[in-house]
Amino acid sequence: MFLVVFFLLPALIMVVASLRYPGEFGGLAPLVSTRPGEEAGLTLESYRVFFSDWVYFEIFAKSFGVAVLTTLVCLLMAYPVAALIARSPKRYRDMMVLLVVLPFASNFLVRVYAWMIMLGPFELLFSRFAVICGMVYVHLPFMILPLYTNLEKHDPALLDAAQDLGANAWQRFWRVTFPLSLPGVFSGSALVFIPVLGMFAIPEILGGKDDWIVGNMIKESFLGTRDWPFGSMLSLMLTLAVLAVAAAASWLAGRRMSRA
């Protein structure tokens, strides 16, 4: 039921919207024409535009690049933090988790503008680097929390056993901690990767025109050019692309498991 209301229904509306003509002043054109010369009914126009220009593909590729990079950087930064919290004495852990989510207590835009002020003096503003910084900064807690939840559940006796059986610190990490944390890595990555693709504020504030990603295009279609069908089509394409990535990831994970 929830799935229908919160996922299927909006998706369906999106599909239908993407097949229609844009309305004169934004919105959607009616299905039946009321005035002569008015475009009405269903059309594949948006899709034709999308597939006839490499620009869109490039933006998608760039977006995925930004998302992958952000996810990787988040993972590298979040892992030690999550491990540190998970290995701290119990009474400090809640406090540390609170510190991780504390930034959410202030407004998102204010925090992004704070990065503007921080990066400005170094001439780093309006660059890909600035965008990644902002993306990582905003999404880091979404990586830390699932990782921490996973790492906290690990039985410390396993590490003792590994060490006892001859594994040094590096081997203990790669052969025990990391494989056991994969569920946390996957959910954290999904929680970072997907929102990054739809993000428009950070590239807009911290990036240059070159750093626009799918999110910006979708936002621009709805609020800028007011071409709703085109925006719907873009966001549908994004959903499909994300699903494809998720399917590929779970296929890879499944293959890994069966090989292991």
């Binding site: 006796a157 003792d160 056993a161 590994a162 006892d164 001859g166 040094n168 056991l180 292991a260």
Partner: peptide, 25 residues
């Protein structure tokens, strides 16, 4: 000599088997 270098092994009360590995692994 750290534990990993001692030719001494332990059987833990909780067994501490690695859950992500098969018996053979």
């Amino acid at each position: 000599t750290p534990p990993e270098k001692r030719p001494i092994h332990t059987v833990f009360q909780s067994y501490a088997l690695f859950p992500h590995m098969t018996v053979a692994q």
